[in-house]
Structures are given as structure tokens and as C-alpha cells.
């Protein structure tokens, strides 16, 4: 490539060459000064941390889930979605249309024994992990067939009878062990993802304690939708709630989620569907 001076020599008459050179020279000078002043006087953003902006005031919601007056709904997850019910209309539609499979129906379909289903129901468990598998459920008249079989495999494998019982879940099939929990998780994951796309904000979740209370903290003021996304089993019914709540900065706002009529809360209560006995399959061992 020819240098600038040679190019000018070719294309410009000699009287204008000097003027052109001066223009280029001035432009280079200008660029240099601009760079130099930027280096010297620009705020040192790259080297120093910008002071954090003042923390925004937040509020919170104390959730009390009371399907009956006497008892709260324990150990159930509730989800907080940004936006009002109207703004989340499409999501609510999806939630309402989502097929609901009860714990009993799932395990009957998987070919689980009556004893196993009863054992889960006693602790309102979604998987085998929620309660200790005691000796009486492993051998003897009250034994759960699935547990007895897994225990026998464990004793052979781990060489220690106690380990066979404590590690019993490692010898259960995937479906029996936590299949119901996993299929619910898959459905929840899909609904949460949908909610996050629609609301353009991440979905927060908390679990109720033994009394059916949970807290959503550090919330920016605004309107939110609180829902359990998938129906919860309570007695012989399924319960699906959605409540609209306006959060202001400051102390917690208590929201009671019950079956009573409330202008901000909607409850869909349905009797648990009967399980289709024909869909039972043999227990996979």
C-alpha cells in the first residue's frame, strides 16, 4: 500500500498538497489529544469499584395456608410469580389445564403394593425419603413387600444387615423410590419456565412449615401471584390456589390462603380422581 504522501502527490496539484497535509496532520493531532484527555481525565471506572446504589426498600409476604380452620397445610411449596392474575392469564390457563395424577394413582399404575401406598400416605410422602423405614416395615407381618425385597438385596450386597436396612432405598426401582416426586418436578419445572418467560422475572418458591406458614422476603414493591402451581392433595380433595397480592415496602403482609371466598384468592377444590385399575402394571424389580 502506497504511503499517504505519495498518494497525495499523485492525486493533488502541488499547491494544494501542503494544505491537504496540514488537514491530515491536524486531524491526527485532534485524535491524539482526545485520546490523551480521555486517559487523563476519564473517570477510573475500570480500576475503582463504583459505589453501590442505595439498597431498594423491600417488603415481604407471610403466607398462611389454611385449608381448614384447625390445621394448616404443611410441607407444600408455593411459588411467587411477578405480575397480576390478569398479566399471568396465559399461565393460569396452562395451570388449570395441566393433567393431575394423584400419588395413589401414580403408584397403582406403577404396580406398587397396597402396603407401600399406605406407608407413603401415612406420612403424606411424595417419595420414600421422607420417613425412616423401620424394622417392622422390612420383615414380619407388617412388612412392605417392596422394602422386604430391597432389604434382602442390600444384605447380600453390603454384607451388613443394618446397612441393608439403612441403605434400603438404593435397592428400590427408580419408579417406586421417587418416581412420583420426579414426575411432579418435571411438570413444575415446565410451568416455572413458562412463568419466567411470561413475567420476565425469576420465580421464587418457599415451603410451608408444619403449621402451614411460609415467608417470601426481600420483595420489591409490586403485584405478585402466589400459587402452588400443581394441586395439593388434602384429605379426599385436591386444592389449587392462586392469590394476587400487592407488596409494599415495609413490614410483612400476611396473606391467608384458605378455602373461604376471598376477592384476591381463588381456590379450585376437586375430589381426588379415582384411579384406573386397568392401568396397573407389574412391579418392576
Amino acid at each position: 500500500m502506497a504511503p499517504v504522501s505519495q498518494t497525495l502527490h499523485v492525486w493533488l496539484p502541488s499547491t494544494r498538497r501542503f494544505a491537504a497535509k496540514q488537514v491530515i496532520f491536524k486531524q491526527v493531532l485532534l485524535v491524539f489529544y482526545v485520546c490523551l484527555s480521555l486517559c487523563l481525565f476519564a473517570p477510573p471506572t475500570a480500576t475503582a469499584q463504583t459505589p453501590s446504589s442505595e439498597a431498594q426498600a423491600t417488603g415481604g409476604v407471610r403466607l398462611r395456608v389454611r385449608p381448614t380452620k384447625e390445621k394448616g397445610l404443611p410441607r407444600k411449596r408455593f411459588y411467587l410469580i411477578k405480575g397480576s392474575a390478569e398479566e399471568n392469564k396465559a399461565l393460569i390457563e396452562k395451570i388449570n389445564q395441566h393433567p393431575f395424577l394423584t400419588r395413589e394413582c401414580y403408584y397403582r399404575k406403577a404396580g406398587a403394593s397396597n402396603e407401600f401406598i399406605k406407608w407413603l400416605a401415612e406420612g403424606d410422602c411424595e417419595s420414600v425419603y421422607c420417613r425412616l423405614i423401620e424394622e417392622k416395615f422390612v420383615s414380619g407381618a407388617t412388612a412392605v413387600p417392596e422394602f422386604r425385597a430391597a432389604y434382602e438385596r442390600g444384605v447380600k450386597e453390603y454384607k451388613k444387615p443394618e446397612l441393608g436396612r439403612l441403605w434400603l432405598t438404593t435397592n428400590l426401582t427408580d419408579e417406586i423410590r421417587d418416581g412420583f416426586y420426579r414426575q411432579r418436578q418435571a411438570a413444575l419445572k415446565a410451568l416455572i419456565s413458562e412463568a419466567e418467560i411470561l413475567s420476565k422475572a425469576s420465580v421464587m418458591s418457599v415451603m410451608t412449615d408444619g403449621k402451614g406458614t411460609a415467608n417470601f422476603t426481600d420483595l420489591l414493591p409490586g403485584t405478585y401471584l402466589i400459587t402452588n402451581l400443581l394441586p395439593a392433595e388434602f384429605g379426599n380433595n385436591s386444592l389449587l390456589w392462586r392469590c394476587e397480592v400487592k407488596v409494599k415496602a415495609g413490614p410483612f403482609k400476611t396473606v391467608t390462603v384458605s378455602n373461604a371466598t376471598d376477592k384476591n384468592c381463588v381456590v379450585v377444590e376437586k375430589p381426588l380422581p379415582a384411579c384406573d385399575a386397568s392401568k396397573q402394571t407389574a412391579l418392576k424389580r
Binding site: 410441607r75 416426586y181 403449621k211
Partner: peptide, 27 residues
């Protein structure tokens, strides 16, 4: 959270409720 989910159960069914803080945490 996943571990809390799977171990969570309504284990207080039928237990008497204590006066002060209501529930015991440890078996």
C-alpha cells in the same frame, strides 16, 4: 431445596401441640 422437598412430610399428625413454639424439630 430438593433435599428439603424429599424429606418433607406431615410428620406431626396427631402430636400434641406445644404451647410456646408449637413444634419440635428433632425426632
Amino acid at each position: 431445596d430438593k433435599h428439603q422437598d424429599v424429606i418433607a412430610s406431615d410428620r406431626f399428625k396427631g402430636e400434641p401441640v406445644a404451647a410456646a413454639h408449637a413444634l419440635r424439630s428433632a425426632p
